[in-house]
């Protein structure tokens, strides 16, 4: 009896605490509660810490971590709930990487407040051990990837297949996928890393995040590339062949999207893909509004409206 009473008391207290933490459930029309999230993202920054030099080339003056950090701070200071993400190929492309093996790149990301990244093929360029060391030493954010099996490598404890961030009253599930390494990355650099089928792995992971972990929103950080002339696996194929992903933030192909691409996923729901070129020339921004799924329309986001932000 004592035990049962204790159980009831604790359960009751737990429930009370839960109710207190979720005042929304007491609101008369809880369904109308709107939650907002601003997602900022980069891909293929390729060690571009400084802006491009003013040498008359097409990109002169563009990019740079200092102006990017100032902009991110400004957006944060506007009072938005901000999520800052990167889709890989952090490394390689300027002498900074040749001289410091990625240390200032990761430190700068940490200073800017990145919250997750995935791994690109060039992040292997100074060896897997180097990437592992730089991440372990300088990053508090996780490397998220579900289709590289690193269990027989030094990366074993330095990555996660998914990561859940609670922000602005939302549970945001983040996963990541990487490109096939054979033929792209010298095998001595990736060692015993096993490349697994990205569609199968990401489908499984996204299902787990959406259905088991009850995430409100699932993001896939991808380094597959947006699309190819042949049937090589890409963000486009992933968008159409998966369920439970809401947004793919891509990379690898260095494509500057005019607008996020919209697809119907395997379950007929809307999914977006975005990519912002390379070098940190652009910072992508997606301002999402959420409300609770209602009635018959359980988790159907078919009606998601996509618009260009005023003044950009």
């Amino acid at each position: 009896m004592q035990t049962r009473r204790k159980f009831i008391r604790e359960t009751g207290l737990g429930m009370a605490a839960l109710l207190a933490a979720n005042p929304v459930v007491f609101a008369s029309d809880a369904n109308d509660e709107v939650k907002k999230l601003t997602i900022l993202h980069t891909n293929d920054v390729h060690s571009r810490l400084e802006s491009f030099p003013m040498d008359g080339s097409a990109n002169a003056g563009k990019a740079g971590v200092a102006p990017r950090a100032a902009l991110i701070n400004k957006i944060r200071n506007e009072g938005n709930e901000v999520l800052l993400l990167d889709s890989g190929d952090i490394f390689q492309g300027t002498p900074y990487f040749n001289m410091f093996d990625g240390e200032p790149e990761i430190k700068a990301m940490q200073m800017m407040g990145y919250e997750a990244c995935t791994m690109g093929n060039h992040d292997f360029d100074a060896g897997l051990e180097n990437f592992h060391t730089k991440i372990r030493t300088h990053a508090k954010f996780p490397v998220v990837i579900c289709n590289y099996d690193f269990r027989e490598t030094v990366m074993e404890h330095s990555y996660v297949p998914y990561h859940i961030i609670k922000k602005g009253g939302l549970d945001i599930g983040i996963t990541g996928v990487g490109i096939e390494l054979a033929g792209l990355v010298p095998d001595k650099l990736y060692g015993k890393t096993k490349y697994l089928d990205p569609i199968m792995e990401v489908n499984r992971t996204a299902h787990y995040l959406k259905k088991d972990k009850k995430c409100d929103f699932v993001i896939c950080l991808s380094h597959l590339g947006d699309r190819y002339a042949d049937n090589k696996v890409s963000d486009e194929i992933m968008a159409k062949e998966t369920e439970n992903i809401d947004l793919i933030l891509g990379g690898h192909t260095h494509r500057f999207f005019e607008a996020p691409r919209e697809y119907q996923n395997k379950a007929g729901k809307k999914i977006l893909v975005n990519q912002v070129g390379w070098a940190g020339i652009k910072l992508g921004r997606l301002d999402y509004s959420f409300s609770r799924s209602r009635g018959q329309n359980l988790d159907n986001n078919q009606s998601l409206s996509v618009g260009k932000k005023e003044g950009e």
Binding site: L272, D287, S289, S291, R292, L304, G307
Partner: peptide, 15 residues
């Protein structure tokens, strides 16, 4: 669960 209803996109040029 919450469901995305609306999204506005923009891209900033960093300079």
């Amino acid at each position: 669960q919450y469901v995305p209803q609306k999204v506005d996109y923009s891209g900033y040029n960093i300079n």
